[in-house]
Amino acid sequence: MTTTASDGRTVGQPALSAAKGSDRTASVSPTVRQSDSPTPVVESRAYNFWYGANHALHDVTIAIPPHAITALIGPSGCGKTTFLRSINRMHDLTPGARRTGDILLDGGSIFAPGMDVVALRRRIGMVFQRPNPFPKSVYDNVAYGPRLNAMAAPREFPDRVERALRQAALWDEVSSRLREPGTALSGGQQQRLCIARALANEPEVLLLDEPCSALDPIATQRIEELLVELKKTYTIVIVTHNMQQAARVSDYTGFFYVGQLVEFGETEQVFTRPIDERTEAYITGRFG
C-alpha cells in the first residue's frame, strides 16, 4: 500500500539527480523545478555539514512538502539522521560541528541571528530512535512541553494532555494509568508516549529518527498507522532504515548516500522508477 500524494497535490518531477560532486548547480536545480508544488514547510539549500573534519552532508537541497510524510532512507552513516537533526538545530551542542548553506522553516532561515532556538524546537517536534520518556508519570511526560513553555493556563493542561494522547492513539490504553511512570509502559507505548509528548507542544513539523527500530512488528504497525493519521495535521519527516516502511507510509522519499541527497521524489516514483542507478541498487537490495 504505497501512499501517493493523496489529496491531489502534484509535485512536478522532483527528480533530483545526483551531482556526483562534479556539478554543484545541478543539485540545486530540482528545487527550482518544484516551484509548482505546494509551498514547502522545510527547505534546505545547498546545506553542508561537518563533524570536525568529517564532511557529513554535501550540498543537500530538499523541499519538504506540508501535510505529507517524507521518508529519508539510505544505508547507515549516509547522513540522513544528521540532516534530520539539523532541522531543529540539535547539532548546536555538538562540538566541532560546522555548516554552510541554509535551512528554511516557512521561508525563514532557522540559522538567522534573531532565531530563538527554543522557539524553533517548539515548532519542530522530535521523536528519537529509542523511546526516551522521562522518569515521570505518563501525565507529566505529556504535560512537560505545555508546562515548560507556559503554553496554556495550568487548568487547561489536562485537556491538552488528553488531546495529545488521543492524537498519539495512546489514550485508550493509558487513560486509567496517567499517574504511573511513563517508563513502565511497553516499548511501543513508550514511543507513542514520546510522540504524544512532542504533539503536546503543538508543533508544525514532526521529525522522527528511526522511531520503530527498537519496536516489534505490531508496535511498528501501530506507529505507522498513527503517522498516516497525523499527516493530516502535521508535516512529518521520518528517517528509516526500513525501506518497506518508507514505501508503506511515506508520500515522498529522499535517498541519501554518502552524505548526498541522491534522489528525492514521490515515493511511488522513487520505488518504481528510480532515476539514479544508486537508488535503484539500494532499493532492490544490491547494497546497504
Partner: peptide
C-alpha cells in the same frame, strides 16, 4: 544520565538550564 534524556528535553524547547533542572537532575 543518558544523552537521550537531555535531548528529549532540548527537543521540547527547553533551554540548557531547563533541561538540567527538568530532565537531568530528576533522572
Amino acid at each position: 544520565v543518558p544523552a537521550s534524556q537531555r535531548e528529549a528535553a532540548l527537543a521540547m524547547g527547553a533551554t540548557r538550564w531547563e533541561a538540567v533542572r527538568s530532565a537531568v537532575l530528576p533522572y
